[in-house]
């Protein structure tokens, strides 16, 4: 695992990729810091960090795309999968290398509260608590990117899908407000999800009948739910969307709350997607 970690780290910084990514990220962060905290004398560093989270939408896809998709394309995954190294080691090695790369600009931004301190009274605990939450948010995003990168050989597709997923997550609060309108809309969306589930089931089992049965079964369940307790449907839907919003738990850090549930949420997301990434690698063997 350490060998893979070292190799990935060296590879990211061998060309201009690592340096330019980190520099660009620091630039964005420092720009917001300058405008919010220094010019407008806003004492909350957490809020500044929250405003820079959009930069992750670009940073994470570019960082994670070459981790698994590139290996598959260049066939170097043959080296890793035939070496006496377990799949968990491979995944963890790559993940930790990317987290380390992400930590570099975050560490640089960590100097900002100290700068603020020179000019006034700043709650360092609040600022660094927010920074920690911010870092966890990035780590969860990187895990998602790693998983999506392992699904395809096409690096552009991997980058775009990671960007898409993170964008959806980013816009989730807005999307959530759209859907509190009516339970009918919720029904429609759940119906679509049921269709997707049916399609996946059908493809996996290679049988049209099974797929259709799954779809019909889910529709029936949804219909019953809608008929009997439509409010439950809307709230369930809201909850589902809430869970998909990666950026919302971070908000509690802005208000100075070191939210343990948020920390757990990020750690669980990271663990889940790392597990799925490992499964994706193993699946290649059996295909």
């Amino acid at each position: 695992m350490i060998a893979i970690f070292k190799r990935e780290w060296k590879s990211i910084f061998s060309g201009m990729l690592g340096y330019s990514l980190c520099a660009a990220y620091v630039l964005v962060g420092v720009l917001y810091f300058w405008v919010y905290n220094l010019l407008n004398l806003y004492p909350d560093f957490g809020y500044t960090l929250y405003s820079t989270t959009f930069a992750m939408l670009v940073f994470i896809p570019i960082l994670t795309v070459r981790s698994l998709a590139e290996e598959r394309r260049a066939r170097t995954d043959q080296l890793l999968l035939t070496a006496p190294v377990g799949v968990p080691s491979i995944i963890l090695g790559k993940y930790l290398a990317m987290v380390a790369v992400f930590t570099v600009p975050v560490a640089v931004l960590g100097l900002c509260p100290l700068v603020m301190r020179m000019y006034g009274i700043v709650s360092l605990a609040k600022a660094y608590g927010a920074l920690f939450g911010y870092w966890l948010l990035g780590c969860a995003g990187i895990a998602i990117g790693l998983f999506l990168s392992g699904l395809t050989e096409n690096t552009i597709l991997a980058a775009l899908s990671t960007f898409g997923v993170l964008l959806l997550s980013y816009l989730m609060p807005g999307i959530q407000t759209l859907f509190t309108v009516g339970s009918l809309l919720a029904l429609g969306v759940f119906g679509l999800l049921a269709a997707l589930a049916g399609l996946l089931a059908g493809i996996r089992s290679r049988s049209l009948t099974f797929g259709m049965l799954v779809f019909l079964g889910l529709c029936l369940a949804l219909g019953l739910l809608y008929g009997l307790q439509s409010a439950a449907l809307t709230s369930a839907f809201s909850a589902l969307l809430g869970a998909l919003g990666l950026f919302t738990p971070f908000e509690s850090f802005i208000y100075g709350i070191f939210s343990i549930p948020a920390v757990l949420y990020y750690v669980s997301i990271a663990a889940l997607f790392l597990f799925l990434a490992g499964q994706g690698l193993e699946k290649r063997r059996w295909n």
């Binding site: 190799r7 060296k10 590879s11 061998s14 060309g15 260049a74 066939r75 170097t76």
Partner: peptide, 8 residues
Amino acid sequence: QPPLYPEM
């Protein structure tokens, strides 16, 4: 195709 990393 030898699994070589071109950047190393």
